[in-house]
Design a protein around this nucleic acid. Structure first.
Lengths: 125, 125
DNA sequence: CTAGGACCTGGAGCGCGCTCTAGCTCAAGT
DNA sequence: ACTTGAGCTAGAGCGCGCTCCAGGTCCTAG
């Protein structure tokens, strides 16, 4: 099964422009082309896109994803380095989750505070 | 107690340029000035900066923080709206934490996979 | 045969959030 | 008196990650 760029966009949640952009900058491999010269994405292409969108969601910078993508091309020998990148990134993600959770507490506190102010206002009104 | 811009930068973790930038765009109130025309931040200023950095950490866009800042100026009557903004934002933050946690699972899975590849390589070598 | 629509390319443009520069003033130390 | 260094302003510039545009090609349906 293969997919047009529009289908690939829909399945990956990226825009068509973004797909072409990612290809231009070497973040995804140029997909096959059909007889008319149009991009034809394979399941494997979509798999990589799915992974890339995960990395993006977690805030990995494009240049790091690119490094990762380029290591992929060099085969299993780069598995160690790729693992290293992911492990490091996982630490970042964990740290960010922790940070967000701390901020959540501050939000809770502030929201409570506003609830009190609101109640006082109503009482005074 | 009052603080020079350099001290305020250090305490808030923002750069001096960023402090001036935030002031320009109306995200923080212009602080007092000393006899030489230099900014002199109060404890209260620092408190607001601390809160702003929390919001920033959680990814709140500057324009939303600005709206919030402007509501502050209009007193307690805007407490309801301010609470609303924070509640909505808290939902965003919770959603993002959940999303990151999903991504973490994917990372774990991939890291495992690379660990296996590495072990195989060593076995073959 | 023609019209429409999806897709193509190369390159320009954009919104965000800073960050840096030039050229100045002011205050303090020696 | 002079140097040094922090701070000042207005405004330009930047890196990121897209997003959009012009102008063209190709396939399909009527």
């Amino acid at each position: 099964m293969s997919y047009s760029i529009a289908q690939a966009a829909q399945r990956s949640g990226l825009s068509i422009d973004t797909l072409r952009y990612y290809e231009r900058i070497g973040l995804v491999d140029p997909p096959a082309r059909d007889s008319g010269g149009r991009r034809s994405y394979s399941e494997e292409d979509l798999g990589w896109l799915a992974f890339v969108t995960r990395l993006r969601t977690t805030g990995m910078p494009i240049r790091m994803m690119r490094e990762f993508a380029q290591l992929r091309h060099r085969g299993d020998l780069t598995a160690g380095r790729r693992k290293e990148i992911l492990v490091e990134h996982r630490n970042d993600v964990r740290a960010r989750i922790a940070e967000l959770q701390t901020c959540l507490e501050v939000l809770d506190y502030k929201i409570d505070h506003y609830a009190v102010v609101e109640r006082d206002l109503e009482a005074t009104a």
